Amino acid sequence: MDILVVGGSIAGLSAAVVLGAQGHRVTVIEQAAGRRSGGVAIDVRGRALETARAMGVLDDIHASRITANAVWNFVDSEGSVQGSWHIADELYDSPDDIELLRDRLAEILAARVPRDVVFRYDETLTGLTQDATSVTASYAGRAPERFDLVVGADGLHSTVRRIAFGPERDFLHHLGSYVGLVRGAHRLADLSGMQIYNVPGRVLSVAADNPEPVAMLAFRSPWLDYDFRDTEAQKRLVLEAFDDVSGWRVPDALAEVRACDNFYFDSIAQVRMPGWSSGRVVLVGDSGYGPSFFSGMGSSLAMIGAELLAAALAEETSVEKALRRYERQMRPHVDDAQSMALDGMDWLFPETQEGIDERNAAWRK
């Protein structure tokens, strides 16, 4: 089949690996000018380890494993440790689960993509028109093309989802929080390990032992109307949310927000949909079932979803049957992953000082 994959990050690369390996003629388009970089450490966990083995990338993922931030220390305003959380013991499904840098996982997947898969960057999808046997994709500045299947792997703010399924607000469920990330937070490089400081409804965490220090500032808030492409507006939201917080290293972290040129900001949200296919358009990864930043399962779900989609296409007698099978097999993985996120938010940044104290006491050894 001729297959268009929209999105060149973890979900899109995973789809390119497995669909290309099956002999499909795959084209991947990405709105960015090149392969996206950024993000922090991510996990490959549970069922995704089997997927990685099937893709032929498990050994490379193992070799890229990082051991930083294995203990998360909850500190007070003076930096004194009030409790410690051993991530391997409390979060991972098994000792085999792997943490590695997101950029490294993207490199590993990209190296496994078959050579005849076509990548086109700086490409903007503008429309999708379907008939009984194909999908016509329209672009900005390029003639339309026909495909047998279109795979939307373009993330939380998916263009494919908006075009084929409806407005973002119909499917994006805000979980009451926002998060900002700064990579290379060098004012905080004197720290070690993972340090977490809370005031009610807000959290600063510093992952100091990554290859470069990463600061995360998250805060509870109802839905905010902002332009997710306007970085300066996003910085202002974080600066305002922490304006009255002076404890621990918050001033240093806010200085990093003001100065950085790699700022990431988004809602803590889940994508919840009754189904992930519409005709011959199907969603994989965050575009269809993003479990939220705090689940730790986004990359794993993207890899599993790509594998299950490819397997269904190989084994069923029609595209329609394959997409139904994909949805049926993928649903339990999504439900389990999405349930994790709500628990994670409650202990990562409690809404009250009493909640912070109780959390710290529970993890005090």
Rank of each mutant, 00 (worst) to 15 (best):
248 W>Y: 13
208 A>D: 09
304 I>A: 10
249 R>L: 09
171 F>L: 11
165 F>W: 05
335 D>V: 11
214 V>W: 03
163 I>A: 07
48 A>Q: 01
22 Q>R: 15
298 G>L: 02
122 D>L: 00
6 V>D: 02
17 V>P: 01
278 S>R: 14
178 Y>K: 06
36 R>W: 01
159 T>W: 12
334 V>P: 12
252 D>E: 15
326 Y>L: 07
36 R>S: 07
241 A>D: 05
325 R>Q: 09
320 E>A: 12
135 V>T: 04
304 I>R: 12
110 A>N: 15
189 A>L: 10
13 L>M: 09
57 V>N: 13
61 I>C: 15
100 L>E: 06
8 G>F: 15
23 G>E: 01
90 E>D: 15
67 T>F: 11
119 F>R: 06
213 P>M: 08
98 I>E: 03
278 S>P: 00
212 E>P: 06
161 R>A: 01
352 T>Y: 05
280 R>C: 12
197 Y>Q: 06
287 S>Y: 04
321 K>A: 15
161 R>P: 08
231 T>V: 13
37 S>W: 04
317 T>S: 15
223 W>R: 11
135 V>E: 01
353 Q>Y: 05
141 G>F: 13
254 L>F: 13
59 D>E: 15
109 L>Y: 05
203 V>H: 06
142 R>A: 14
95 P>A: 09
273 M>R: 13
270 Q>C: 09
166 G>K: 08
284 V>A: 07
50 E>M: 10
365 K>L: 09
161 R>M: 09
346 D>M: 12
53 R>Y: 12
116 D>L: 02
73 N>S: 15
319 V>E: 04
72 W>T: 11
204 L>P: 11
329 Q>K: 10
41 A>N: 13
136 T>N: 07
232 E>Q: 14
125 L>V: 02
51 T>I: 00
314 A>F: 03
188 L>R: 06
240 E>Y: 08
361 A>P: 03
234 Q>N: 14
68 A>N: 05
279 G>D: 08
64 S>D: 08
203 V>D: 06
253 A>V: 13
229 R>Y: 13
